[in-house]
């Protein structure tokens, strides 16, 4: 089971290990081979390798937008949980994704999310997704609102 509270302690290695355990406990994140690159203090970076199963256009080999959405949603959730005032569980209330360009076939995609504001009940998050051309324009950006209820039964 994921240990959400450890994600907020200060030792970065321990945090990263806990975060990787957290993501591996999410069946869909595991199915897509998502990997934690960085997490803590209300921000997170999660990568997803290129995978033929995720292709949305068989002619070009470009990954489906939905797979990018799933990566960004996961990353936004991890950012919320890693916030110093974050909840122990969170769910998406609203998510908007803008697709700037097709991800280059064969390249991994990395999402970076920041929980830039949190209230007693809502966490506000921004995210970007890049392929391996990290200096180029993002593949997609997202903004979202997530639940931030502190009670364990929050959903």
């Amino acid at each position: 089971m994921p240990d959400y509270d450890t994600m907020r302690v200060s030792d970065p290695e321990r945090v990263k290990r806990a975060a990787q355990d957290f993501i591996e406990a999410i069946p869909h994140a595991r199915a897509c081979n998502m990997h934690i690159e960085q997490v803590g203090g209300g921000s997170a970076a999660i990568s997803m390798p290129y995978d033929l199963r995720l292709v949305g256009d068989p002619r070009t080999g470009v990954v489906h937008g939905g797979a990018v959405s799933a990566l960004m949603d996961t990353c936004c959730g991890a950012a919320v949980l890693s916030h110093p005032d974050g909840p122990s569980a969170s769910a998406t209330i609203d998510l908007r994704i803008d697709y700037m360009r097709a991800a280059t076939p064969g390249q991994r995609i990395i999402a970076r999310a920041t929980c830039h504001h949190i209230t007693r009940s809502v966490a506000f998050v921004r995210a970007t997704a890049h392929d391996e051309e990290e200096d180029g324009p993002p593949v997609a950006t997202a903004t979202g609102a997530f639940t931030a209820d502190r009670s364990p039964a929050a959903s």
Binding site: I26, H28, D73
Partner: peptide, 24 residues
Amino acid sequence: DEKLIGNPMLPALHGGVTAAFLEV
């Protein structure tokens, strides 16, 4: 399917899966 789960404790569908399903 099991691999569509995002919160194993509730359990609930992954928000990203829901997003992908609607987009498809």
